[in-house]
């Protein structure tokens, strides 16, 4: 018993080191974001002495973040909602229902999941332009939905396939049709998985630069991440301001994570141990 307790402590040491390695770079970024340009050039690694909060103010105004935040929120919320809705429908059908083409459908999901965006970049933008969705929220939402949908369907199918058939069959006996089973059983039961996927897809949409740059070419329509990356183009030598901008973009994500972390990391597990 004693030996086991000691070995647990021994294991905890590298784990603590890893935790430090996980936090340290972020502390580091904050440190640099607080330096003024001169201090950054002269002493990049040291702890800041200037505490130049102005970087954050500059980043906010120069990157037009007020406006771009709104764009990001609209696009992210819409994309995630559509992705979750469609993925839970398709995931349920693929995992639980027998229909001709089920396997083909699954292969389409698996195949499209492996297409890096760069592969279809140019034809995709051409298509967007042809249907007139360049520089529109709808265009960017379609782009995100089509990019992140396959993985979410895969995940949901995988999740739903673990829900015993007896449950859905019982619901059928109660007089539900397939839509009823989906709406009354699968959606509520899928909540933990939908929450995880929701957070993950929100991260992808929020952090994306490439797709947003291509679809939103007009300055007014940009997302906040693009606004900040343009900051780098505009002030190529001002790394602290750039990092301050990036931190401002990431901040809401960290807040959301801290709020939902129990659901993400623990909540997913809790439901099952009871079962």
């Amino acid at each position: 018993m004693r030996a086991e307790r000691i070995s647990r402590w021994v294991i905890a040491i590298p784990m603590a080191l890893l935790a430090i390695a996980t936090i340290y770079p972020m502390v580091y970024a904050v440190n640099i974001a607080l330096k003024d340009r001169r201090e950054y050039v002269l002493d990049r690694l040291g702890v800041t002495t200037t505490f130049n909060i102005q970087n954050f103010v500059d980043a906010w105004t120069q990157a037009n973040m007020g406006r771009y935040y709104l764009n990001s929120i609209i696009v992210t919320v819409a994309s995630v909602a559509i992705i979750l809705l469609l993925a839970s429908m398709a995931g349920y059908a693929i995992a639980h229902l027998t229909f001709r083409g089920n396997r083909v459908m699954f292969l389409v999901i698996l195949g499209t999941m492996m297409i890096p965006f760069q592969v279809i970049m140019v034809p995709f933008i051409k298509l967007m332009s042809d249907i007139g969705t360049i520089n529109t929220y709808a265009g960017l939402i379609i782009a995100y939905v089509s990019q992140f949908l396959p993985f979410t369907v895969f995940f949901m199918a995988s999740f739903y396939s673990g829900i015993p058939k007896e449950i859905t069959e019982a619901a059928r006996v109660d007089g539900n049709n397939l839509w009823g089973v989906w709406g009354r059983i699968m959606l509520p039961l899928g909540k933990p998985a939908l929450l995880s996927m929701g957070i993950l897809n929100a991260l992808f949409c929020w952090n994306d630069i490439l797709i947003a740059l291509l679809v939103m070419q007009s300055p007014d329509q940009r997302t906040v991440m693009v606004g900040v990356s343009a900051l780098r183009g505009q002030y190529p030598d001002n790394v602290p301001t750039y990092l301050a901008g990036v931190l401002l973009v990431v901040l809401p994500l960290v807040v959301v994570y801290l709020i939902f972390q129990r659901q993400i990391t623990a909540g997913v597990t809790a439901g099952a141990t009871k079962g």
Binding site: A95, G162, I167, G190, K191, A193, T269
Partner: peptide, 19 residues
């Protein structure tokens, strides 16, 4: 008492995700 975790899903299915 349905298992509602990913791992439950993944576990109880002999081949998760593969229909």
């Amino acid at each position: 008492t349905a298992p509602t975790s990913t791992r439950a899903v993944v576990l109880s299915d002999p081949s998760p995700g593969w229909p």
